[in-house]
Computed example of a mutant assay.
Amino acid sequence: MSAQQVTVWELRCDGCNELLDDPEYGSTMVAESVDRIREIGAGQEWSQDGDTDLCPSCTCARVGHDRQPSITGSFVYCGRCSETLLTATAEPKAAFL
C-alpha cells in the first residue's frame, strides 16, 4: 500500500465562516479544483463579491433578499437563502422589521 498526496479544497463564507457542503458527495471537501467548489457553491446561491465568498445568508445581508412567492401564494420567501419573509397575512417576520 502507498500513500498519495491529494490537494483538496473547501469553501468558507468570508462573512460568517459557514462551510459549504457538497450535497452530491456529502463532504465539505472537493479534490478537483477551486473552480469546481465555487461552481458547486454557485448552485447553492453562494456568491463572490470581488475576492469575498459569501453564503446565501451573507449574500442576502449584503444585497437584499431575492423575494419569491410560494406556490400557494400564502408566503413570500427568499429564493436565495429560503428564509420565510412574509406570512399569509403579509405581516413581516420580526427579524425583518
Rank of each mutant, 00 (worst) to 15 (best):
V6Y: 11
Y77C: 03
A95V: 00
G50L: 12
M29L: 11
G79M: 00
L97H: 11
G73W: 06
D53Q: 05
I37W: 00
H65N: 03
L20K: 01
Q44T: 14
D22K: 03
D66N: 01
E10F: 12
C58E: 06
C81Q: 09
D35H: 15
E18Q: 03
Q5N: 12
E39Q: 15
G64L: 04
G43W: 07
G43P: 13
F96G: 09
C81D: 14
T52W: 13
S70R: 02
L85D: 15
Q4N: 11
P69A: 05
Y25W: 12
R62C: 02
G15Q: 00
R67K: 04
L86S: 10
R38Q: 04
S74K: 14
R80P: 13
A95R: 10
P92D: 04
S27V: 13
G79R: 02
G79V: 01
D53V: 15
Y77I: 06
K93N: 12
L20W: 01
S47N: 02
S33G: 11
W46L: 08
A88D: 15
A42N: 04
T7E: 12
F96W: 15
V76D: 13
E45T: 07
T89F: 08
E24N: 10
A90Y: 08
V76S: 10
D22T: 07
D66M: 05
E10T: 09
T7W: 10
G26T: 11
C81W: 09
I71C: 10
M29D: 07
N17P: 01
